[in-house]
Computed example of a mutant assay.
Amino acid sequence: MDIEEFRKAGYQAIDRICEYYASLQDRPVVSQVQPGYLVDALPTTPPEQAEDFSTIADDFQKLILPGITPWQHPSFFAYFPTACSFEGILGDLYSSSVSNPGFNWLSSPACTELEQVVMDWCAKLIGLGDHFLNKNGVGGGVIQTTASEACIVVCVAARARYIREHPNAKLEDLVIYTTTQTHSLGVKAGLVLGLEVRALPVKYERISQSRIAD
């Protein structure tokens, strides 16, 4: 694909995205396909020759969209919000156009510094003190892609700090505490890190009393 072919395909993609959102409220809230529909529709071996991108784009319309549960549907209230804005879609397009691995400042100065600024914004939005900010040289943080990933990072940091402060500690003695109402991310973190996870029972009466007290 050369630049002009990319330009043409890009215009078509934007048009199709607009058509999708314009018709979103008329689509079913839950995908109507049956398990295995896509496995049966796709070849069992990878293609040996490249396909024209228009064919791939058509396959997206015919094969992928029918199997999408539209979390952005106005009547979708399951799980948690995953708002998707047109600005966000364009932001993803711009980000993909440079595709810089920002693992340190030299590899991508803008990515590194933008993340620092945004993390400081987040810290201020939730009322954290200055010692949580990048600018003081002690605080700061990085953006994680999912809540589960963030939980694992937090547990790794806690484990590393505890072992640093208690060099004779044994990993098998370390425990992650959650509650019976905690998302499965706590259990997953324990599985990945090889740590025991204990779920503390939560009684409805205690939750109600806590809310009344607040």
Rank of each mutant, 00 (worst) to 15 (best):
M1T: 12
R7Q: 15
G10S: 14
Q12F: 11
Q12S: 14
A13W: 00
R16W: 10
C18D: 10
C18E: 12
Y20D: 07
A22T: 06
Q25P: 02
D26W: 07
P28M: 04
P28C: 09
V29I: 06
V30S: 10
Q32I: 10
V33Q: 01
P35D: 06
Y37N: 04
L38Y: 05
L38P: 02
D40E: 13
L42N: 05
T45I: 11
P46E: 04
A50H: 11
E51C: 12
T55L: 08
T55S: 07
T55W: 06
I56G: 08
A57Q: 08
A57L: 14
K62D: 12
L63W: 01
L63K: 03
L65S: 02
P66W: 02
I68D: 04
T69L: 05
H73P: 01
H73Y: 02
S75P: 04
S75K: 12
S75R: 10
F76Y: 11
F76S: 01
F77D: 09
P81R: 04
T82K: 13
S85F: 07
S85I: 03
E87C: 10
G88A: 07
G88S: 07
L93R: 02
L93K: 01
Y94F: 15
S95F: 11
S96H: 11
S97G: 08
N100F: 11
G102V: 09
F103N: 10
F103D: 07
N104W: 13
N104I: 15
N104Y: 11
W105P: 00
C111W: 04
T112R: 14
E113V: 15
L114N: 09
Q116M: 14
V118E: 05
M119C: 14
A123T: 10
I126E: 06
I126R: 03
L128P: 01
L128C: 08
G129H: 04
D130R: 06
H131T: 15
F132P: 00
K135C: 14
N136C: 14
G140I: 00
V142G: 09
V142W: 07
I143G: 03
I143K: 11
T145C: 07
S148P: 02
S148T: 09
A150D: 03
A150P: 01
I152D: 00
V153D: 02
C155V: 07
A158L: 09
A158I: 07
A158W: 03
Y162S: 08
I163C: 03
R164C: 13
R164M: 15
R164V: 13
R164Q: 14
R164K: 14
P167R: 02
P167I: 02
P167V: 06
P167L: 06
N168R: 08
K170M: 14
K170D: 07
L174A: 03
V175A: 09
I176L: 13
I176K: 01
T179P: 02
T182W: 00
H183G: 08
V187Y: 03
A189G: 04
E196L: 13
E196V: 15
V197C: 06
A199G: 08
A199N: 13
A199R: 01
L200C: 10
L200V: 15
L200Y: 14
I207P: 00
S210M: 12
A213I: 11
